[in-house]
């Protein structure tokens, strides 16, 4: 088979993934609207957004599982390949963890991996060594002969991750890798992703967990309704976009006692049915105002990615959530 292009070599600089003007329409629904981004080698980029924001669709388009709307200005480049026509080259260099586990229930743990090692063209002997290594890496060695039904949700997820690593990928595409998992498993997966990143693997993930993005991502992309709303390093975005301190009032009724104390200070107010959040740059002011309240009635804290996320995407539920 003749190769048209050589994939960019590991030493080469420039982005591993570059995309511009990705659009995807399902009937009248604009699932992805003119999305563009680029990912540097060895970094981790997290796509954040509510359900239905278009994150998964973008991931699928990158490895050819989805097709973007045919438009002349759409540009997608993964390792120098275009997924529209060169999906095999891309998938050979990538590991994908889909949102659903899709394991073969009839087979046990090691057989699941044996079957998939064939897809990457790995011979029997090399596969056996690679599988042992990956089971060890994902702490599944003692489950080698277990049936899939006997595995917990966290074990299944780890197995799918091991499966995605069979081909020694340079790029990992992870669609909600830790959704629904307990904190222990989540920590283990984060730990492994850090290890992989250190060895130069580029990671692209979608998540609902702000902590996950803060833990792993060098850069976050916040999406909503198919649009990219914000892009940048999480810490920088946080400082630029959100006031550093928050006063949470658990009971709206207390607002009348607090609000006169703001004086001339700029305070941003987010009102929920029961609670009110006040965002401000002045922590001492916020602290001085709550003196008369009992501890259970309020909470003064630093703002975090969750606040950024809610500010950017709005706090009302959309029709897909």
């Amino acid at each position: 088979m003749t190769e048209k292009k050589q994939p960019s070599s590991p030493t080469q600089t420039g982005p591993v993934v570059a995309a511009r003007h990705i659009n995807k329409t399902y009937g009248s629904l604009r699932a992805v609207n003119n999305v563009g981004f680029s990912i540097q080698r060895g970094t981790c980029v997290a796509f954040l957004g509510p359900n239905g924001a278009g994150k998964t669709t973008v991931m699928k388009i990158l490895y050819g599982k989805g097709e973007p709307d045919p438009r002349p200005d759409t540009y997608i480049n993964v390792f120098g390949y275009d997924p529209r026509g060169e999906q095999l080259e891309i998938k050979q260099l990538s590991g994908v963890v889909t949102q659903e586990d899709s394991l073969d229930e009839e087979l046990n743990v090691v057989q699941n991996l044996q079957v998939y090692s064939r897809f990457y063209g790995i011979g029997r002997r090399r596969a056996a060594a690679r599988i042992d290594e990956l089971l060890e890496f994902m702490e599944l060695s003692d489950k080698k002969r277990s049936r899939i039904k006997e595995l917990s949700g966290g074990m299944k997820r780890r197995l799918v991750m091991a499966r995605s690593l069979l081909g020694e990928p340079s790029l990992l595409i992870l669609d909600e890798p830790t959704t629904g998992l307990d904190p222990q498993v989540r920590q283990l997966i984060w730990d492994r992703l850090h290890m992989l990143k250190r060895t130069g693997v580029t990671i692209l993930l979608t998540t609902h967990y702000m902590q996950e993005a803060a833990q792993l991502a060098d850069e976050i992309v916040i999406m909503d309704h198919g649009n990219v709303l914000l892009t940048g390093p999480p810490q920088q975005l946080l400082t630029e976009q959100v006031e550093p301190f928050v006063l949470e009032l658990k009971n709206k009724g207390l607002a009348a006692d607090i609000e006169p104390g703001f004086g001339d200070e700029a305070v941003r107010k987010e009102e929920y049915t029961e609670r009110i959040l006040y965002y401000s740059h002045n922590s001492s002011m916020l602290n001085s105002l709550v003196g008369g309240l009992s501890p259970g009635e309020y909470h003064v804290r630093q703002s975090d990615l969750e606040d950024l996320f809610l500010k950017t995407t709005g706090r009302k539920l959309n029709e897909l959530q």
């Binding site: 095999l88 050979q92 073969d104 087979l107 079957v115 064939r118």
Partner: peptide, 21 residues
């Protein structure tokens, strides 16, 4: 880096092998 994509026969065999297993 392993950039050699498997051949058509190897890919078809992989799918067939999955079903056999």
């Amino acid at each position: 880096m392993n950039s050699n994509k498997p051949s058509v026969t190897s890919r078809l065999y992989a799918v067939w092998y999955r079903h056999v297993r």
